[in-house]
């Protein structure tokens, strides 16, 4: 990736703006927003309820992740507060997805991946020998970068998690509720038995969110959930995330900094080399970061 161009580093990933034809436009936009970044006029939302800290539900202690011989994360320490939105930002390839996947042990699925250190969930190290990753993933839901609905009906997509987790009572009600919370129910109410693949990209991603929250996990991990969406769908998903934070702990990876500023309470900044450089209240990170490198990154001076 050409990380040395300001376009890429200020979080204005052209893909985030939807279709390819919009790239030129978005370049212009991000350029101008780049100016405003330098004036540090970040639109950090006032989430007053979030000002007081809650207990950490996920805590990483000195986490290193390797893919074969290559180190993707270097001694990451972070404490993710319960029922808050925590954003992970940083240039691409800096290990954000890797960190997210180490929380619910999705890295287990990659043969080459190796995790060292402690990752506590509710105080329990999830890498202990007696932890069943399947049980862990039932408590920690995940939404992926590109929408990946099953080639099943909309209803079956949402019901799948309930089914495998044995939560088979009131399935109908739970499916409807999950779709409602994902702000999708109105649009699909009378096509629940049609294939989830027939929905638009934005609807598919909300379907995936509904699918993830239907079994009622405690934590929701989202890996750039809006990166493949157009601006309208993106703003729907963002609204949704803020609402979800009332009941869930949300950890969201994004390399759109405006998005992180808008929706998160805490922000972790990863920089190249798999280092977590700074972790603090979102307002602090965007208005007055401790680290010069973080400031440079946020103002687009470096990537």
């Amino acid at each position: 990736m050409t990380r040395d161009t300001p376009l890429e580093t200020d979080g204005g990933d052209p893909r985030a703006d939807g279709s390819g034809t919009a790239v030129a436009d978005s370049a212009a936009q991000t350029d101008s927003s780049d100016e405003s970044l330098l004036d540090s006029s970040f639109d950090v939302e006032d989430r007053s309820h979030a000002s007081e800290d809650t207990d950490a539900i996920v805590e990483a202690r000195d986490i290193d992740v390797y893919y074969g011989d290559e180190q993707a994360l270097q001694s990451v320490d972070v404490a993710i507060p319960e029922k808050r939105v925590t954003a992970m930002i940083g240039p691409s390839g800096c290990g954000k997805s890797t960190f997210l996947r180490s929380i619910n042990r999705m890295n287990d699925l990659i043969d080459a991946a190796r995790v060292e250190g402690e990752l506590l969930f509710d105080g329990k190290n999830v890498y202990d020998d007696d932890v069943d990753p399947v049980a862990l993933r039932r408590k920690i839901g995940m939404v992926f970068q590109s929408p990946n609905p099953f080639p099943k009906s909309i209803y079956d997509n949402v019901a799948y998690g309930l089914e495998v987790q044995g939560k088979t009572d009131d399935v109908d009600e739970k499916v409807h509720r999950a779709l409602e919370r994902a702000a999708l129910l109105d649009e699909v109410e009378d096509q629940l038995d049609e294939s989830g693949l027939e929905l638009s990209g934005g609807q598919q991603q909300r379907l995936c969110i509904a699918r993830a929250i239907a079994p009622d996990p405690e934590v929701l991990l989202m890996d750039e959930p809006a990166s493949a969406l157009d601006p309208v769908a993106t703003s729907k998903v963002e609204d949704l995330i803020e609402e979800l934070a009332e009941d869930y702990t949300v950890v969201i990876v994004t390399h759109n900094m405006q998005q992180a500023a808008r929706i998160s309470d805490k922000t972790a900044v990863f920089l190249t080399g798999g280092e977590l450089v700074e972790f603090d209240d979102t307002a602090k990170i965007f208005e007055n970061p401790e680290s010069q490198r973080v400031e440079d990154y946020i103002t687009g001076k470096f990537g």
């Binding site: 619910n104 999705m106 699925l109 399947v134 049980a135 862990l136 993933r137 039932r138 839901g141 995940m142 992926f144 590109s146 990946n148 609905p149 099953f150 080639p151 799948y160 998690g161 495998v164 987790q165 995936c208 699918r211 993830a212 079994p215």
Partner: peptide, 10 residues
């Protein structure tokens, strides 16, 4: 991506 979706749901 479909397998991951499945594993991600436990």
């Amino acid at each position: 991506s479909l397998r991951e979706a499945g594993y991600g749901l436990g």
